[in-house]
Write a protein that binds this DNA or RNA. Structure first.
Length: 506
RNA sequence: GAAGGCGUAGCUCAGUCGGUAGAGCAACGGACUUUUAAUCCGUAGGUCGAGGGUUCGAGCCCCUCCGCCUUCACCA
């Protein structure tokens, strides 16, 4: 008894053998001068037979129809547009016609060995068939790779998320949105670089391996260096090194890089994700608002789909200027009480299903801090309403201990978050450059951390850097994955990351 | 971490009341020079996620486990 896989493997092995017997390498080699399928389809297709343009193309076989001495292939490459043909049908491939009399003898012998999933090079002329389908009329074929595995159903495609994630290479071929999103992500990141470079920022690379994982309050991944025999952490933020560079006089600096947080996985969280952080000397959070607006509008424009982008049921209007709203005002508007009125805030909490008491394992062990209740209320009552884009600015100082206070108002932190569709897209501060306050606040934060987070340590070296005077600065952080989600109408982070973390099979 | 859903051929999916495991595509053999989800004739393909239990009999009912999805919780 043979399994279907065995049958399949045996048949492909037999074809490999037959191709080799013809003196043809089934794995191909350098194939110069081929035209992208997008460009082939743009060639004039209505010339008389004798005047058809000569073309060379290469692609993956995604369809084949045999008809005795005439054979049709559908091939696809990474430029292949989705178009509607003269019959009103949607097509996502370029047709190749192989006629026994039109193609050379060796190529005709190869035809019976062609399978869905193979990579093939074609030389021929470009025109239309009697049915009006743009087609390459093949004169010779070149093998560029034989698929030894079956490919997904050509019409149903790939439906199961797990199958798509574990076979992303197939997903890129058979789910058009996957390739489209991937290319858009690349374009967005490139646009960010171009835009920032154009504003005089410089991009740097800072260490991924940290002796102390600082700059955020997240649990890090741990690792170990053998020669030094020390524990190391993968970075959870870019912040502390970039600020050292501010001290060093690099006045406009940014980094786009991977950060790692050893926390939950969800539609909006992957353990490794891409952050962009930038710092600008002698600027503040207001400067960052203008910069953020310009940066994201540049990304929107780069995608070429206009400034109103769909997201789920909504349309988000990225046309500047964007709304700017005070935290206090939004709070009053949606919660209905003044956030500084402690009794009123406490009384309002249950209306939004928030317990103003701290409960551990079913027991009340105390009252939550006022600022904590305020922020929980904000998250439950306000965030979802922020279709935006909207800059929420001037946070309660208690929520942002490491942010510079407003001059003359120590209860307000100079911070904003950019919200779009209820998602936090960017986070910016007027950075604290007073090393004494910074150190005190660090120590207070560390003192409050639970046992399991005891790997968090004071970064003395960073404090020492600040003590040499860091310029006042504005800082901005943008979660690139979430930005791509928003701009490509994608609801899960796993579809904007090519290879999101999955539990290994078996 | 909790609850719910899903897991059947390579892919996409049916499977009724517990009674011999099904279809389309893909594959294999054959016919066919303008097809395009080609058509026609024929063939093969299964650890029903894994393990245990109930039963004369389990894809289906029960238990345990694994994986994925969704919601919630967590989340600078």
């Amino acid at each position: 008894m043979s399994s279907p896989a065995d049958n399949f493997e045996a048949s492909r092995a037999e074809k490999l053998h037959r191709i080799e017997q013809l003196g043809v390498d089934p794995w191909g080699g350098r194939f110069d001068g081929h035209t992208a399928i997008r460009d082939v389809l743009a060639l004039p297709a209505d010339k008389p037979d004798a005047e058809r343009p000569k073309v060379r193309a290469a692609g993956r076989i995604v369809g084949k129809r045999g008809q005795g001495k005439l054979f049709f292939l559908d091939i696809r490459d990474w430029t292949t547009p989705i178009r509607t043909n003269e019959q009103g049908q949607e097509r996502h491939a370029l047709q190749v016609m192989i006629g026994q009399k039109q193609v050379n003898e060796l190529s005709w012998k190869l035809v019976s060995n062609l399978d869905l999933g193979d990579l093939i090079g074609v030389d021929g002329s470009f025109g239309k068939t009697k049915m009006g389908e743009p087609t390459i009329f093949a004169e010779s074929l070149t093998y560029l790779g034989k698929s030894l595995e079956p490919h997904p159903d050509k019409w149903a495609g790939m439906q199961e998320m797990e199958y798509r994630l574990r076979h992303r290479y197939l997903d890129l071929i058979y789910t058009p949105d996957t390739l489209d999103r991937t290319l858009k992500r690349i374009k967005i990141i490139k646009t960010i670089r171009n835009h920032l470079d154009g504003q005089g920022f410089v991009e740097v690379e800072t260490p991924v391996l940290h002796a102390i994982a600082g700059g955020a309050a997240a649990r890090p991944f741990t690792t170990h260096h053998n020669t030094l025999d020390i524990p190391l952490f993968q970075r959870i933020a870019l912040e502390l090194h970039l600020k050292r560079l501010l001290v060093g006089g690099i006045e406009k600096v940014y980094e786009i890089g991977r950060v790692f947080r050893n926390e939950g996985i969800s539609q909006r969280h992957n353990p490794e994700f891409t952050m962009m952080e930038l710092y600008q000397a002698y600027a503040d959070y207001r400067s960052m608002m203008d910069l953020t607006e310009g940066l994201i509008v540049a990304c929107v424009d780069a995608l070429g789909g206009g400034r109103q982008l769909p997201y789920g049921e909504h349309t988000v209007n990225f046309e500047p200027p964007w709304q700017r709203a005070c935290y206090v005002d939004l709070f009053r508007e949606h919660v209905g009480v003044d956030m500084n009125d402690k009794d009123a805030v406490r009384a309002a909490a249950p209306k939004f299903k928030i317990n103003p008491q701290i409960v551990v394992e079913g027991k009340v062990i105390g009252d939550k801090d006022h600022d904590v209740i305020v922020h929980e209320l904000f998250e439950h009552a306000v965030e979802d309403k922020l279709i935006g884009p909207v800059f929420v600015h001037d946070y309660p100082a208690g929520l942002c201990p490491l942010t510079k206070r407003q001059r003359g108002n120590p209860n307000i932190a100079e911070r904003f978050e950019l919200y779009v569709r209820g998602m936090e897209l960017a986070n910016a501060y007027t950075e604290l450059n007073d090393p004494i306050t910074q150190e005190q606040t660090f120590r207070q934060q560390l003192a409050g951390l639970p046992e399991e987070d005891s790997m968090a340590k004071m970064d003395e070296d960073f404090i020492r850097a600040l003590r040499h005077a860091m310029p006042p600065a504005g800082g901005l952080g943008v979660g690139i994955d979430r930005l791509v989600m928003l701009l490509t109408n994608t609801t899960t982070i796993r579809d904007v990351i090519l290879f999101p973390l999955l539990r290994p099979e078996k």
